[in-house]
Design a protein around this nucleic acid. Structure first.
Length: 324
DNA sequence: AACTGTCGCAACCGCAGCCCG
DNA sequence: CCGGGCTGCGGTTGCGACAGT
């Protein structure tokens, strides 16, 4: 595998490493440790450049390398970290013991990225991609009918869109984005069996989905009217309060929300997003316990993965600085 | 069986940033 | 401050494996 070996100007070998070369590098580093990659190949008796030696060691020969397929938890972690860090593969790898930046990068490009695209999620922004839904069908949608405060949000947005009709017509991309965000709640429920169908609490999901849409709508309004007071017309209710009151989720602190192994201090205004993230995390853990054991067949695991739709909140982190 | 297209991944390339004289 | 050397990172390449026809 890899490129055809070829010698460069300095007569150094390139291309795939042979087992003999690997052994030489391993033996040398075991005895002397690594460091000064420039002089290492010469000292180790290798016809390679230091860069190539370093890459081989870091990505393949290191004893703590974890080989094999990424676990579901690792996959989730990669997506979450990518939301925060972007293509900072080395930073992501630092939080995944035994995995290299190269491996994570390859896995992202060959698996996760494609899956997100299939789900209609932009792998770069982690937001729903623009679609071609008609605004009228969205505004007439019944998605908000059972939720009074969301209905008022809808009315506010309708008013807003009316006021901004001209600019939206001028900028069709914004119009598409608006329709996309309105439709995302419906799509979440329709296309997200992972999240919705396996839950025992529909109200909980409804609350979560509404929050996702509200957050995105709020962001959209800021995009549409970044310098206008009209943006203030969009007054989204505090779902966190509503949620805690109705569902007794007292274990979610408004000051510190646990995310995986991190305790993340967050600002009051954005904690609701973390609460939703936490809900998803707990639900995932619950579902994880219900999944087949890891030694079940690869095909089964693959089938499970291929049917997974990642919750939107998983792809929508806030308080990046605090998390890092 | 032969051909073609696609996928996965190891390895390379170029650049940016850091360090040191 | 400046320039050269070194390291590390992210993007890209290209081959082998595999699936589809």
């Amino acid at each position: 595998m890899g490129r055809i070996p070829c010698s460069d100007k300095n007569g150094l070998k390139k291309g795939p490493w042979t087992p003999e070369e690997d052994q030489k590098l391993i033996d040398y580093i075991k005895e002397h440790g690594y460091g000064n990659w420039r002089t290492l190949p010469k000292n180790a008796g290798l016809q390679r450049c230091g860069k190539s030696c370093r890459l081989r060691w870091i990505n393949y020969l290191r004893p703590d390398i974890k080989r094999g397929r990424f676990s579901f938890e690792e996959e989730e972690t990669i997506i979450q970290l990518h939301t925060i860090l972007g293509n900072k593969w080395s930073a992501i790898a630092a939080r995944l013991p035994g995995r290299t930046d190269n491996e994570i990068k390859n896995y992202w490009n060959t698996h996760i990225r494609k899956r997100l695209l299939r789900m209609g999620i932009d792998p770069v922004t982690h937001s729903p991609r623009l679609d071609l839904l008609d605004i009228s069908s969205i505004l007439n949608s019944s998605m908000f009918q059972n939720n009074s405060h969301l209905l008022s949000s809808q009315m506010n947005l309708s008013r807003l869109l009316g006021m901004q009709q001209q600019s939206l017509l001028i900028n069709p991309e914004l119009l598409k984005l608006a329709t996309s965000l309105f439709s995302s709640n419906h799509q979440l429920q329709k296309n997200n069996p992972y999240l919705i169908q396996q839950s025992t609490n529909f109200q909980e999901n409804q609350c979560f989905n509404n929050q996702v849409v509200q957050n995105q709508m709020a962001a959209l309004v800021q995009d549409i009217l970044p310098f206008s007071d009209d943006a203030q017309l969009m007054q989204f209710p505090n779902v966190e309060e509503d949620f805690q009151a109705n569902n007794n989720y007292a274990n979610f602190s408004t000051q510190n929300c646990q995310m995986n192994d991190y305790y993340v201090p967050v600002q009051q205004g954005s904690c609701d997003q973390f609460i939703m993230d936490n809900m998803i995390h707990q639900r995932q853990q619950q579902q994880q316990r219900q999944r087949p054991p890891p030694n079940s067949t690869t095909n089964n695991n693959e089938d499970v993965r291929e049917n997974i739709n990642y919750p939107s909140s998983m792809l929508n982190f806030k308080n990046v600085d605090e998390f890092i």
